[in-house]
């Protein structure tokens, strides 16, 4: 056997199974969703077609457009909140904890919640913020309020808190990784040249940790814009996100073409964010030399 033939044979004996699998259960379904997003809905199901009506509906019908804007806004709010929580923690771990063991322990402690059931983490916030919940009963117990308040649960604030809580580890990990990579000599050089601490932070540490921040934003934004569990559990009446509408269209509403179109929009948003942060990171890298 010629080496080339043997190599090909090797390759296909390895790859036939996976290729068939990935093709059937991954590529075909994704393409189907794309195709159905151009179909026309016809009771009780839909008919093959090629038209942009579903996409037009998403923009023209204010009901869907509001959901789209709200999802972007909530995802942004969650990312910013998560960032504000994660940066100080990551910074403290990377620069202020002197013992390696303690640092590893604290870092692990920050990541471990990631592995605690997603659903349960969302659900505990319901028990904490609810009108018969822990926060209310605590405030009543110590006498700050006399009647249970309903302002904590079933609003966008509760949704942002819950999601920020769930996704914080995704922000801590990349920020910590990028802070740890910063050469300490750069920071010392800046100090030696007489720069005040905040200037050193603003000119050296922050810019050099941007790749981690970008990665963290990408993770949290993508995860929160695709979430449909937290909105249902803690979001209340005005909290429908893109993912909720997709779920409804594939469930009770039985409008797959519209659901698919919305799915494609969601896919484009997430892939767009990933590509954009990739580009930004590359530009940053060149500027820093």
């Amino acid at each position: 056997m010629k080496p080339r033939t043997r190599r090909l044979l090797n390759f296909w004996s390895l790859f036939t199974g996976p290729a068939l699998w990935w093709g059937t259960v991954l590529l075909v379904p994704y393409l189907m969703m794309l195709a159905i997003s151009f179909y026309t809905r016809q009771f009780p199901f839909h008919v093959p077609d090629f038209q942009f009506g579903n996409y037009v509906t998403l923009i023209a019908d204010s009901q869907y457009f509001t959901v789209l804007l709200r999802s972007l806004w909530i995802a942004l709010a969650v990312s910013v909140t998560t960032f504000c929580l994660s940066y100080p923690l990551a910074y403290f771990l990377a620069f202020k904890v002197r013992s390696n063991r303690l640092r590893l322990f604290l870092y692990t402690a920050a990541i471990v919640p990631l592995w605690v059931s997603y659903l349960l983490r969302a659900y505990t916030w319901k028990t904490i913020l609810g009108s018969e919940g822990i926060l209310n009963s605590f405030l009543m117990w110590i006498g700050i309020i006399s009647e249970p308040s309903t302002i904590f649960l079933y609003n966008q604030g509760a949704m942002v808190v819950t999601m920020a809580y769930i996704f914080t580890p995704f922000m801590v990990m990349p920020i910590y990784a990028s802070l740890e990579k910063i050469p300490r000599s750069l920071i010392e050089a800046s100090k030696d040249l007489g720069a005040p601490r905040f200037t050193t932070f603003r000119k050296i540490t922050l810019p050099l940790s941007m790749p981690g921040v970008l990665a963290g934003f990408t993770f949290t934004f993508g995860l929160s814009i695709g979430d449909f569990i937290s909105p249902i559990l803690v979001g209340g009446p005005y909290s429908n996100m893109i993912a909720n509408v997709v779920a409804t269209q594939f469930g009770m509403a039985m409008n797959w073409p519209l659901g698919s179109a919305l799915g494609v929009v969601l896919l484009v948003i997430v892939l767009g964010i990933i590509t954009a942060s990739d580009k930004l990171e590359r530009i940053g890298r060149i500027n820093l030399g």
Partner: peptide
């Protein structure tokens, strides 16, 4: 392209994989 495709399910929201596979199985 294949490499990108393979990691799509952990890159994209799980819901997209869910509905597209639902579409596939039903079809």
């Amino acid at each position: 392209v294949f490499r990108r495709l393979v990691i799509l399910p952990i890159t994209l929201p799980g819901l997209i994989t869910g509905v597209s596979m639902l579409t596939f199985f039903r079809s």
